[in-house]
């Protein structure tokens, strides 16, 4: 069967199945199981209302449990076991973690990831804040915002191609077709193959993610800036504050909560970053990151134990943010 037809059929079955499930299960509950008539009408209605939420939630809970909650446990188990040739698993304790820790590539990935974690959220948020503050003050700001926001729609792979062209290298003497080398040569420098210069190439990869995430930061911070009560700014103007003082001493402190939210959201994106490194360098020239290291172990080296251990390290790094988010969400609901 043609995949497109198959897709269409799946939509029909999926949508029809979902609607049918919700509709029929409700009818069953109200008409058959606990009908709202007869001697126990009141009791039946109450009982039906006790069960109904779970009918509504069931498909979602099943999908969430199977596709997100169960894998966390299963990955933990896999990271503590080794596959036995011929099938089956054997308990390996922390051997996979020890093996991973002694792998120089893992150290490199961890170091690079920490570098990414420091640089990308900071610069994306800073650029986003700058763009939000500047574009809010001018008439054509919405057009400028659209353009800065646009990379959000571009895939990491597409962005990788775009930036590879920017970083393109031709030997000295030839016409450079990469913008970066053209500028460097124009200023009298020597062209470099930027992505192969260890350590610094990390920053050239980070630039791609900063380029993508700045728009996100800008949109959210711009909304936060608009939410600042005008009286506070007016009071500062009356007191003779200059625009920089107004920005740093009046506005930024008031949107600190939003800045933290933006920062943590980008941090999570950075922890999971895979496509950019995979497409641009594939971890060569000392640009390895955790998610790509994990992919390497899982699908190239076929070492599920170490791969799962690497995934658990990513999970461990995400956990503080997870706890913090849950804490805040619970505080809000009270």
């Amino acid at each position: 069967m043609h995949p497109a037809l198959q897709g269409l059929l799946t939509i029909l079955i999926g949508v029809g199945g979902c609607v049918g499930y919700f509709y029929l299960s409700n009818i069953f509950l109200d008409k058959v199981l606990f009908p709202a008539r007869g001697p126990h009408t009141g009791r039946n209605i109450n009982r039906a209302n006790l069960i109904r939420p779970w009918l509504f939630l069931a498909p979602a809970l099943m999908a969430l449990g199977l596709y997100l909650a169960y894998p966390v446990v299963e990955t933990l188990r896999l990271s503590l076991t080794d596959r036995v040739p011929g099938g089956g698993y054997e308990w390996a304790g922390f051997q996979n973690y020890v093996q991973m820790w002694n792998d120089p590539k893992f150290g490199e990935a961890l170091f690079n990831n920490i570098l990414w974690l420091i640089v990308v959220p900071a610069l994306s948020t800073a650029f986003g804040l700058l763009a939000a503050q500047l574009t809010d003050r001018i008439k054509w700001g919405s057009v400028a915002k659209s353009i800065i926001f646009m990379p959000m729609a571009i895939s990491f792979v597409g962005a990788a191609v775009i930036w590879k062209l920017v970083y393109d290298y031709r030997p000295a003497g030839q016409d450079q077709i990469g913008v970066l080398n053209a500028i460097v040569v124009g200023l009298g420098g020597d062209p470099h193959a930027w992505l192969t210069v260890p350590f610094w190439n990390n920053f050239f990869l980070m630039a791609v993610l900063i380029w993508i995430q700045t728009g996100f930061a800008m949109v959210i911070l711009s909304a936060a800036l608009r939410g600042i009560p005008e009286e506070t700014v007016e009071a500062a103007i009356v007191d003779g504050a200059n625009p920089f003082q107004i920005f740093f001493k009046i506005k930024v402190p008031q949107i600190m909560g939003t800045i933290v939210v933006v920062w943590t959201t980008i941090t999570i994106v950075v922890l999971k970053i895979f496509d950019i490194v995979f497409a641009m360098t594939n971890g060569q020239w000392e640009t390895q990151v955790l998610a790509n290291y994990m992919y390497d172990k899982l699908f190239r080296a076929n070492d599920w134990g170490v791969g799962s251990a690497a995934a658990m390290v990513i999970m461990l790094l995400v956990t503080p943010i997870l706890v913090w988010n849950v804490y805040n969400a619970r505080k809000e609901m009270r």
Binding site: P53, L57, L78, M294, M315, V318
Partner: peptide, 29 residues
């Protein structure tokens, strides 16, 4: 809009699952 025991817990669980890296799900799934 529905009231049932465990609702707050479920909402918290969903907030938690928001940030679980999908990398963990690859091999088990």
């Amino acid at each position: 809009w529905m009231d049932f025991p465990g609702r707050a817990l479920l909402i918290a669980a969903i907030v938690a699952l928001l940030v679980v890296p999908l990398q963990l799900a690859l091999i088990p799934l």
